[in-house]
Simulated scan of single mutants.
Amino acid sequence: MRLLYLHQHFSTPEGATATRSFAMAGALAARGHQVTLACGQYAGAVTGLAGPFRRGRREGAVAGFRVVEFAIPCGNVQGAAARSRAFLRYAARATTLALAGRFDLVLASSTPLSVVLPALAARRLRRLPFVYEMRDPWPELPRAMGVGGPALWRAMSRVADAACRESRAVIALSEGMAETARARGARQVAVLPNGCDLALFGPGIRPWRPPGIPPEALLAVYAGAHGPANGLFQLLEAAALLRDRRLLILLVGEGAERPRLMAAARLLPNLRFLDPMPKPRLAALLAASQIGLHCLAPVPAFAEWTAPNKLMDCMAAGLPTVSNAGGRAARLLEADPLGPCGIAVPPGDPAALAAALDGLAADPDRRAALGRAGRAQAEQRWDRRLLAERFCAVLEAAA
């Protein structure tokens, strides 16, 4: 199979962002498929390519597959207008590639939703089948957050309807997203959640702590975007309420809210900010930490429409995790048959966050038990190699 894999935010593990597309493209290549992955320049990503861009693109082999990188910068620190322009520029360049190349199947992996436009063009102009990977439900999430307006939501809804109805299959990252895809007319839907790299995140990783952190400090780590959807001001409020002076909250990453967060936290001695870091360095930081953190804004729609890889990374690292998300995330932490591996607190309740952190700080035996259960759940349910086999099977059937 000759596959065109469209993912604007692609990164290898040397970058500081998600690596799902790297793992899945590598698994497809290992099964003998010819994979071309087209991406842009996402902030924090490392594509594995070097050398100059020619006519706005460069390409080369990465981990057994071909990567085509367009010179289109994009990132969370950009404003909405700049990101929208980047999304549309990528869609235009990817459409040219899809129409000109010799492919048997297109995989359009959102976010953003605009990534399906090249797949729809190839479907209608060349009868080229495609699979739509729904990482976020559009426009449901923007509408739930009040981002955009009715005209934009209607336009996005039409694109999302077409993506679900015209695709051979939809890959959804959660059951909530799968229900959304079916409601939009998808015929074949496979739920393939985010997984974790058990070799990268694990108990055998050599621990690393940033300079200047006291050896007796108990570290609670949040690693991810610092945007409105993440609701990180709740962590600042929780830090102000902590009773255990050994606890230190680390916020790793970047995003539009980071300058405001840093200004608001300047008087909090138990909270620090770290720049985005490559996945191996993050794995070493988690190995030196005691608690993982997962935080979202208190938006009810997030309960079943999110599939956070942060939870999976913390489980793989053997860390107990505190989350303020309800729904699926809460079930993974507290209601799994393998046993609880973390604590879920009510959304929008910084006092409950602080109480959960204080409780874990005072109980090392409970931290250890929750961490073991999390690692066991990661090994049995979220090993990315197992999920990649199912991912490949969906695409092979669609082709």
Rank of each mutant, 00 (worst) to 15 (best):
2 R>I: 08
6 L>G: 11
6 L>D: 15
21 S>Q: 12
29 A>F: 09
29 A>G: 11
30 A>Q: 11
37 L>D: 11
37 L>R: 03
40 G>Y: 05
42 Y>N: 08
45 A>Q: 06
48 G>Q: 09
49 L>T: 12
51 G>H: 05
55 R>S: 15
59 E>W: 05
61 A>R: 15
74 C>H: 10
82 A>G: 04
82 A>K: 04
83 R>Y: 03
85 R>V: 13
86 A>M: 03
89 R>G: 09
95 T>D: 06
96 T>M: 07
97 L>H: 13
98 A>I: 05
103 F>R: 08
106 V>G: 09
112 P>F: 08
125 L>T: 12
132 Y>I: 04
133 E>P: 05
137 P>I: 06
137 P>V: 14
140 E>I: 05
140 E>V: 11
144 A>C: 07
145 M>R: 07
146 G>A: 14
147 V>Q: 13
147 V>N: 08
148 G>I: 13
155 A>H: 08
160 A>G: 11
162 A>P: 07
166 E>N: 12
182 R>V: 02
183 A>N: 02
185 G>R: 02
189 V>S: 01
193 P>C: 00
210 P>L: 06
211 P>S: 09
213 I>H: 10
214 P>W: 00
216 E>R: 10
220 A>I: 07
221 V>L: 10
229 A>E: 01
229 A>W: 00
232 L>R: 04
232 L>Q: 05
240 A>V: 01
251 L>Y: 03
252 V>I: 15
254 E>T: 15
254 E>H: 12
257 E>H: 04
265 A>L: 11
272 R>K: 14
277 M>K: 00
278 P>K: 00
284 A>G: 13
284 A>D: 10
284 A>P: 12
287 A>H: 10
289 S>K: 07
308 P>D: 07
308 P>Q: 07
310 K>Y: 02
311 L>Q: 09
319 L>R: 12
321 T>H: 06
325 A>T: 14
327 G>Q: 11
333 L>K: 02
333 L>G: 00
336 D>R: 02
344 A>M: 01
345 V>R: 02
357 L>S: 01
364 P>W: 03
364 P>T: 09
368 A>V: 00
373 A>S: 14
374 G>L: 01
375 R>A: 05
382 W>K: 04
384 R>G: 04
384 R>S: 11
384 R>Y: 06
